[in-house]
């Protein structure tokens, strides 16, 4: 095993989208326990250096495999398909794009009205939708082995996760503003 082996091989997991999160977490701890720099505090320089590189690699692998979107993108990249490079793939998907614009408009409005309730409601609705998308994506990857469809699905999820992050940011901003007001009062 060397530093450039892929993340699934590193974690001894089959390269699939559906994965056992508990097993992933357990492997992560086992690996860190054997490579972490704290285990090599008294070792020679070469070993300390290697240990840091491995620990960084294991952290990166864990982060990538743990998050479903990062995992999907990674699987596609392993298969030689880069969802980020596939620009224009969504151009035909006008329904999706229209829907995205509607979402965005709703978020903008809620933020403008400083309505945390509306943002929370949007967040919940989006979470349900995203969940359904991930289930569909799992089917593309693991059941149908349809990578072309998986690229499209992943690109959609990239949009939606970005939207989710925006809602989170807007909520955090409003919460902080509210706290600051209360403290000032």
């Amino acid at each position: 095993m060397d530093l450039t082996c892929d993340f699934f091989t590193l974690f001894r997991l089959a390269p699939r989208f559906r994965l056992d999160v508990a097993a992933l977490a357990a492997r992560y701890l086992e690996l860190q326990n054997s490579v972490h720099p704290d285990r090599f505090a008294q070792a020679g320089q070469a070993e300390r250096r290697l240990s840091m590189q491995w620990a960084a690699r294991v952290n990166e692998a864990y982060r990538t495999l743990k998050e479903p979107l990062a995992r999907a993108q990674y699987l596609l990249r392993l298969a030689g398909r880069d969802p980020e490079a596939a620009s224009g793939a969504l151009a035909e998907d006008t329904d999706f794009l229209m829907q995205q614009m509607e979402w965005r408009e709703e978020v903008r409005q809620a933020r403008q009205e400083r309505s945390m309730a509306a943002l929370r409601e949007l967040r919940q609705r989006l979470a349900r939708e995203v969940q359904a998308q991930y289930e569909a994506l799992a089917a593309r990857f693991d059941d149908e082995h349809d990578l072309a469809a998986a690229v499209g699905q992943t690109r959609r999820l990239m949009f939606q996760e970005k939207l989710r992050a925006e809602i989170d940011d807007a909520l955090a901003f409003l919460e902080d503003a509210e706290d600051a007001e209360n403290a000032g009062a």
């Binding site: 082996c5 091989t9 997991l13 089959a14 054997s34 490579v35 290697l50 491995w54 298969a79």
Partner: peptide, 27 residues
Amino acid sequence: MDQGIQRALAGKRVEELARGAASAPPM
């Protein structure tokens, strides 16, 4: 280091290990 990593994962889920190896993805 390599030995440490191998040991960390040794004896765990042999069947999955074999499966992973059989369908090893491209690097």
